[in-house]
Computed example of a mutant assay.
Amino acid sequence: MSLVPVSTLLQEAQAGGYAVGAFNCNNMEIVQAIAAAAEAEKAPVIMQASQGAIKYAGIEYITAMANVAAAMVSVPVALHLDHGTSFEQVMRCIRSGFSSVMIDGSKHSLKDNIALTRRVVEVARAVGVSVEAELGKIGGTEDDIHVNAADAFFTDPEEARVFVRETEVDALAIAIGTAHGRYKGEPKLDFARLEKIRSLVNIPIVLHGSSGVPEEAVREAIRLGVCKVNIDTNIREAFVDRCREVIDEYPDEIDPRKILGPAREAAVELIREKIRIFGSSGKA
């Protein structure tokens, strides 16, 4: 099966009242884990590559691995750029074969964010690639992007309405209390704000920084209109923790396959659990 645009998956999720998991991939084993988990759960899935992943693995490797993974499973798979920050970077990913891109202009003024996003939408839509944008700043650290807690601010519902109208973007990432990376305490999501935004914006809503958000809160966010849930940190934790366990148990092991293989299986189980929480199991 060929890679599909994220917009196709999210439109179905919005109609069905569930969310599609968007899982960040940094190496071959995690790409394999995402595909295996989605196939096992018969769920649509989104593979995401951040700027850090592209820098580490190379855009050609990531695109090739995602295409191979999509061809080997029976469920729909999208390849999405996570937090693209420039028009040039987004165009590079589209040329490479990404089926979806995110342009993150949240650091700009509303006017400039609209202009940048609109420019990306015009080009991407012409070649069948879907576009996600962000309004409001989501705290924490994502690769080279860092937002201090003092600088993070929640998405204004009225600005969201104007932004979506002016950009015609396919999906909108909003800031309602989540953060990238590990949480120091339990996040408190602003469900009233989410509900207000959803009443003004009739496109799929995206929840970033969802690792560490309690299961009940994620389910409530989905009930209120979130259709795409991003997971990265939890996968890293499961993967690396299993690597450490194997190395501790077998300190003389030098075969990377015997270390990374169990780590891949740990990632599969974590991703399958998330898919079930999101309600997308059996939706492929």
Score class of each variant (00 low, 15 high):
95 R>T: 04
8 T>Y: 03
36 A>C: 14
49 A>Q: 00
240 V>H: 05
233 T>W: 01
35 A>W: 00
247 I>C: 10
269 E>N: 10
132 E>Q: 09
36 A>V: 08
81 L>T: 00
207 L>K: 03
149 A>M: 12
119 R>C: 15
46 I>A: 01
80 H>I: 04
242 R>S: 06
191 F>K: 09
47 M>L: 14
108 H>S: 14
90 V>D: 01
106 S>K: 05
248 D>C: 14
167 T>L: 09
176 I>R: 07
35 A>M: 03
248 D>H: 11
243 C>R: 04
54 I>R: 02
37 A>W: 02
229 V>W: 00
228 K>C: 03
81 L>F: 05
130 S>V: 06
234 N>K: 13
236 R>A: 03
93 C>D: 00
15 A>M: 14
178 T>Y: 05
261 G>Q: 06
82 D>R: 07
114 I>M: 08
216 E>N: 11
265 E>Q: 12
270 L>A: 15
194 L>G: 05
156 D>Q: 15
175 A>S: 15
8 T>N: 07
202 N>R: 14
13 A>Y: 01
19 A>H: 00
104 D>M: 00
82 D>A: 07
137 K>S: 15
245 E>H: 10
24 N>W: 06
263 A>Y: 05
56 Y>S: 07
130 S>Q: 10
280 S>P: 11
246 V>K: 04
126 A>C: 15
165 R>P: 13
142 E>F: 10
171 A>N: 10
145 I>R: 13
42 K>D: 00
255 D>W: 10
240 V>R: 07
118 R>W: 13
68 V>I: 14
274 K>G: 08
10 L>R: 01
81 L>I: 03
182 R>D: 15
116 L>E: 11
195 E>C: 06
3 L>T: 01
163 F>T: 13
95 R>M: 05
133 A>H: 09
167 T>M: 11
61 Y>W: 12
251 P>A: 08
67 N>W: 13
68 V>T: 13
57 A>W: 01
60 E>S: 07
213 V>F: 03
255 D>N: 08
61 Y>R: 10
120 V>Q: 02
76 P>H: 04
59 I>V: 03
95 R>G: 04
266 A>E: 11
22 A>V: 06
24 N>D: 14
33 A>T: 08
214 P>R: 06
83 H>T: 04
268 V>E: 04
199 S>G: 14
77 V>Q: 12
85 T>A: 13
263 A>Q: 02
44 P>E: 00
89 Q>Y: 13
44 P>K: 01
19 A>L: 01
221 A>R: 04
45 V>E: 01
40 A>H: 06
280 S>V: 03
58 G>L: 00
170 D>Q: 10
233 T>A: 04
91 M>D: 06
168 E>N: 11
25 C>A: 15
259 I>S: 02
58 G>I: 00
218 V>H: 03
231 I>C: 02
60 E>L: 05
31 V>L: 09
118 R>M: 15
161 R>L: 13
